[in-house]
Design a protein around this nucleic acid. Structure first.
Lengths: 149, 149
DNA sequence: CTTGACTAGTTCTACATCGAACCATTATAG
DNA sequence: CTATAATGGTTCGATGTAGAACTAGTCAAG
């Protein structure tokens, strides 16, 4: 019969597996990006392209699951590189809005190509079918964790 | 018909989901550990308890998927706290061996209780069944990434 | 033996990230 | 209206982590 302890180990083992996969994939991603651009920066650009820009820093932070102070820092890096522009929100004196620049879009598109290449070398048909199989379940877990934070 | 780009987005979305789950679970874990003990530190203690101590720093680093310089740092923290002892390897003048102290074992056991509590509040039967369902697939992905690093 | 390649750990520097304290603006209650 | 609470961002200090260069010990080839 299963004890609570067994269950705990099961849960812990699961998140451990998640952590290592994250570690390995982040490292792969980092290696296929140019120097000075961290995976998290790329992720922000990608988010803005896919979801549309003109979002507030706080909204982006929430989507990326990082704190707002981290987002302040990351946006500064992207702004210094000329990939985004940050402007005050005309409707709210406290807020700001983030826009992609042309350079930002170009950089993101080129980065996608390089990243796709790098991952294509490692992710074969077998892995792809696993990814497709469990993606929905991962979404459920993520949504649940997010809701019960 | 599916293009390469669609596939890339699928793969990217998968790792993104993994990253967010990792982020959320790490944050949960961090909150249920006492101040000054990072999840990665806890993970090392846990590893030593489960796999047996007397391992070299490099072996532990490899198991945790961090670099050896990171491991040097983490072990120093654990040693300062009195949770581990580090001794020279009698069979290899270059190497060292890591041992758990009694305090380390006690701390780990207490931490397990607190962590189990915290996760028990969030992980219900539905989540547990998902975890059981996809754990094997995650192992496959992890092993593949590890092999093709 | 001795030299050159390899391995185990450390140190240094850089950076992403967090928590906490803080400022400015907006919203709400009395 | 005014005082208080809540919200959006920034700044500061601390810390985990990676990459590169380095030291010291081991191993292998001649």
């Amino acid at each position: 019969m299963k004890t609570d302890d067994d269950t705990a180990l099961e849960v812990f083992g699961f998140f451990n597996e998640i952590g290592i996969i994250n570690q390995l994939s982040t490292t792969m991603l980092a290696k296929s990006l140019p120097d000075g651009i961290h995976p998290s920066h790329f992720s922000i650009l990608n988010h803005l392209v896919r979801m549309g820009d003109g979002k507030s820093p706080l909204r982006i932070a929430s989507a990326m699951q990082v704190t707002k102070n981290t987002m302040t820092h990351s946006l500064k890096v992207l702004q210094d590189r000329g990939y985004i522009g940050v402007e005050p929100n005309p409707d709210d004196g406290r807020g700001k809005l983030v826009y992609l620049t042309d350079a930002g879009r170009v950089f993101r598109d080129q980065a996608i190509l390089r990243v796709t290449d790098a991952f294509g070398d490692v992710i074969g048909p077998d892995q792809l079918s696993i990814i497709r199989r469990i993606h929905g379940d991962l979404e459920l877990i993520r949504a649940h964790l997010d809701r019960n934070r």
